[in-house]
Design a protein around this nucleic acid. Structure first.
Lengths: 258, 258
DNA sequence: CGACATTTTGACGGTCTTCAAGACAGGTGG
DNA sequence: CCACCTGTCTTGAAGACCGTCAAAATGTCG
């Protein structure tokens, strides 16, 4: 009885195909034909979920594959000589991690789970071969990498020229967009990471984060109860973030015109 | 007489082939066969040199091609709503620009020449087609994009966690590496951009840059006469930059093992 | 030479960090 | 059920670092 249930559970998770995945418009298969998606499916490996804090890979690990987040969330981070850590990105379902390792075949950043998280593993050598055969896939890969470059540059701009307030506004809107894109509420959501980690990502001390959240609440821009966020005044936040109608940085989610 | 000379000049510049280009180990052709390089050669368009301040493309221009710097140098930059400018990168011979536009087919940043600069134009649609046929080219493109992602993340780290001093040390070492890689002196070089632009890139005010350079000279770490730089104490700079033996960020130059 | 941009210098102030302490939450074991 | 503990968050006070402002000096190019 129990054995049967467990077995069913594992089969149903492990055999989830790209075709039926609700994220396939965010992830690689976008704009591929059914037949192409099946080819892609054949090389995708599903792994058992990671527990909170578990590592998908560590900095220095040799590179084998890139990963698409299926559920849960990840952070990627580097560690400096002196041991201080810098979060380089948060990754939600439908987003890819590991693209920064293609050049050197070694992961320059570690990736760990912020909560229970499952990913699809895309062995890179096979993905490359497939990309040479399927023009749409090659193009999609170029695009996703380009998008990441663009997002990193936006983030760079933010770090160089924007105040703490503006940076937090940007980040909140980035999450808002990314949740919205998955059909979740763009105004009410639960952040999967601690304030400390948000602050680390934004280059701000935890104390500053605390004060910022208080100020944002006093201004009536949002309600925050721990990790539970409720955005009340998106227009003001958008104005603060400095880039009116444009996409917020900090993630891999941007519109994809053809 | 004059007509003949001018004509010769133009032919010799315009017909310079990748095979004979001294930069081909920095740029795309790396590790391609002679035959493959010839195919690449066929799609490369050489343009007439840009004058200082001239634009290769502007933010908002539609994307047609990526470009490899052949001689001279470029900066890429974004402009915010309020008009303030942020330099997103400096690009020396052998480096590519325009990769951030692949995703949206619109250039999110402008690119302008810091001095008289010539580039090779690589029409992207044709490059994509060629990449599907030549596995080595596809791989090289993935690599170069990955390298850029990595470099941007390093830069992000610097902006988030490093002091003005540390950032300047990083940048100087980045230029040192990049000049060195081209066979020039890694300790004596002429920066192609103004202090103001360096500062803009690093997220620092011009006044701060001035004070930094003075402090660095007082410490005996370098000599600077305008844009002419002479690094005197690379080990100390390297220690300051926080990443001992590793690559400095801020550019597209990293070792490429196979 | 003369107009203009870039760089330098000094004084001052704001933003964010750091340090130190206390509040709160979630989980564990008695 | 409560005491305990650890990690996270909050709050306050002090100070560092860098930005801003203003003005002079230097450099650059027509």
């Amino acid at each position: 009885m129990t054995g049967s249930t467990r077995s069913d559970f594992r089969i149903s998770t492990l055999r989830q195909a790209c075709t039926h995945c609700s994220l396939n418009q965010l992830c690689l298969p976008m704009s591929l034909s059914e037949a192409d998606i099946e080819q892609l499916d054949a090389i995708v490996e599903r792994r058992k979920p990671l527990d909170r804090g578990g590592h998908l890979y560590r900095a220095g690990d040799s590179f084998r594959a890139i990963y698409a987040v299926r559920s849960g969330s990840l952070k990627t981070y580097t560690t400096a000589d002196n041991g201080e850590e810098q979060v380089t990105g948060f990754h939600l379902p439908g987003e890819l991690v590991g693209l920064d390792a293609i050049n050197s075949w070694v992961h320059p950043c570690g990736a760990s789970a912020l909560e229970t998280t499952s990913v699809c593993e895309l062995p890179f050598e096979e993905l490359e071969n497939l990309a040479a055969d399927i023009p749409g896939l090659q193009r999609q890969l170029f695009r996703l990498m380009s998008r990441e470059i663009f997002a990193d540059q936006e983030m760079l701009f933010a770090m160089a020229r924007r105040s703490a307030e503006e940076r937090l506004a940007m980040l909140l809107l980035s999450f808002s967009d990314r949740f919205g894109r998955r059909g979740l509420s763009p105004s009410r959501f639960r952040l999967p990471m601690a304030r400390t980690e948000l602050g680390n990502y934004l280059g701000l001390a935890p104390e500053t984060m605390s004060r910022l959240f208080r100020r944002f609440q006093e201004q009536g821009w949002l309600e925050a109860d721990g990790r539970e966020i409720n955005l009340l005044d998106v227009p003001t936040l958008r104005e603060l973030s400095g880039r009116g109608g444009e996409e917020a940085a900090g993630g891999q989610c941007h519109p994809v015109p053809e």
